[in-house]
Amino acid sequence: MIQLKNIDKYYDSRFQRTFILKGVNLEVKQGEFVSIMGPSGAGKSTLLNIIGLLDEASAGEYYFWDEPAHRIKEKQKVQYHRSHIGFIFQAFHLIDELNVYENIETPLVYRGVKGKERKALVADLLDRFNIVAKKDLFPSQLSGGQQQLVAIARAIIGNPKLLLADEPTGNLHSEQGEMIMKLLKKLNEEGMTIIQVTHSKENAQYGTRIVKLVDGLVQEDFPVENRK
């Protein structure tokens, strides 16, 4: 599904080139749950952003469903964001001005889904995530766990093939974090491909494979044993 070949990411300052990623090769198959781990500054989030088409690699090739994603235009990226890729973030990044229902609905609006259909889809998800009672609340009125739940609902409502999670439990206490990880695992079991960035070994155990990144290089890449 995803194939990265020799991905470089660097910034040029006046006299030197600073590499964030250097020669990263990675292949992710459909249905995998990959955890990218590594110390701070290793390039984990940058890699995730490149996979999510939020950032561009400085060099190398990136194939998404065998399409050369490193060559596609802005307009096409929007199509990928709309139909193939969902995101969740450490800081949730819900839209403060919209309530729970509207937040979840937003991606459907951008995809041009009709009102009635939107209503049905959102209602379905609210029900599934057990947050029907919260649908009229605003993000500031929710706990962190609930906010992340909403963020996940928003990320998957468009039925993406790939879910990218940047430290999804980083701002949550352990109990809520566990709840979120279980949900991700469930989604994976239902067929969703997931790539998450995490510091936590424990959280990585929910996935199927771990990629360790150190100083922009893939140091280790191994399947998870004793998956939680």
Binding site: H81, S83, H93, T106, P107, Y110
Partner: peptide, 16 residues
Amino acid sequence: TNFIAINRVLGSTPHI
């Protein structure tokens, strides 16, 4: 800025 970034991730076009 935040709002724009989130929307981009959610698949909005610059147009929107």
